[in-house]
Simulated assay, not measured.
Amino acid sequence: MTMHERIAELGRIRQEALDGPPAGTAAQHAKGKLTARERIELLLDPGSFQEVEQL
């Protein structure tokens, strides 16, 4: 695997971590609830939250 392929793979994994499991997100929305990240976005100023250790 080349370095570019590894970087692309890491980007894909990070995006999956940010999106969360589709079934879990859909279940939260079906209950009329927001996900944790959606609630944080509503609480804080745009761009003020920096998530670490997302994987």
Rank of each mutant, 00 (worst) to 15 (best):
residue 1 M to T: 11
residue 1 M to A: 12
residue 2 T to F: 10
residue 2 T to M: 08
residue 4 H to N: 14
residue 5 E to N: 05
residue 5 E to G: 02
residue 6 R to G: 06
residue 6 R to P: 02
residue 7 I to F: 07
residue 7 I to E: 08
residue 7 I to G: 01
residue 7 I to W: 04
residue 7 I to S: 04
residue 7 I to N: 04
residue 8 A to H: 09
residue 8 A to S: 11
residue 9 E to A: 12
residue 9 E to Q: 13
residue 9 E to R: 09
residue 9 E to M: 08
residue 10 L to E: 12
residue 10 L to T: 10
residue 10 L to K: 08
residue 11 G to M: 05
residue 11 G to K: 10
residue 11 G to N: 10
residue 11 G to A: 08
residue 13 I to S: 14
residue 13 I to W: 11
residue 13 I to Y: 13
residue 14 R to A: 14
residue 14 R to F: 14
residue 14 R to E: 15
residue 15 Q to H: 09
residue 15 Q to A: 09
residue 15 Q to P: 03
residue 15 Q to R: 12
residue 16 E to I: 14
residue 16 E to D: 15
residue 17 A to M: 12
residue 17 A to S: 13
residue 17 A to I: 06
residue 18 L to N: 04
residue 18 L to I: 10
residue 18 L to S: 07
residue 19 D to T: 04
residue 19 D to R: 04
residue 20 G to N: 00
residue 20 G to T: 02
residue 21 P to F: 13
residue 21 P to R: 15
residue 22 P to G: 05
residue 22 P to S: 07
residue 22 P to E: 08
residue 22 P to V: 06
residue 23 A to T: 10
residue 23 A to N: 10
residue 24 G to T: 05
residue 24 G to C: 07
residue 24 G to P: 03
residue 25 T to R: 14
residue 25 T to N: 09
residue 26 A to N: 11
residue 27 A to W: 00
residue 28 Q to R: 15
residue 28 Q to M: 15
residue 28 Q to S: 14
residue 28 Q to C: 15
residue 28 Q to E: 15
residue 29 H to E: 04
residue 29 H to L: 04
residue 30 A to E: 11
residue 30 A to W: 06
residue 31 K to M: 08
residue 31 K to Y: 02
residue 31 K to C: 06
residue 31 K to R: 14
residue 32 G to W: 01
residue 32 G to T: 04
residue 33 K to P: 01
residue 33 K to I: 02
residue 33 K to W: 05
residue 33 K to F: 05
residue 34 L to Q: 03
residue 34 L to T: 00
residue 34 L to N: 05
residue 34 L to I: 00
residue 35 T to M: 00
residue 35 T to L: 06
residue 37 R to I: 10
residue 37 R to E: 07
residue 38 E to D: 03
residue 38 E to N: 07
residue 38 E to V: 04
residue 39 R to S: 06
residue 39 R to D: 01
residue 40 I to N: 00
residue 41 E to W: 01
residue 42 L to D: 02
residue 43 L to P: 00
residue 44 L to Y: 03
residue 44 L to R: 00
residue 44 L to S: 12
residue 45 D to A: 14
residue 45 D to R: 09
residue 46 P to F: 01
residue 47 G to R: 03
residue 47 G to I: 01
residue 47 G to W: 00
residue 48 S to V: 06
residue 48 S to D: 02
residue 49 F to I: 10
residue 50 Q to T: 13
residue 50 Q to K: 09
residue 50 Q to P: 01
residue 51 E to K: 04
residue 51 E to H: 05
residue 51 E to L: 11
residue 52 V to H: 09
residue 53 E to S: 15
residue 53 E to R: 12
residue 53 E to A: 15
residue 53 E to H: 13
residue 53 E to K: 11
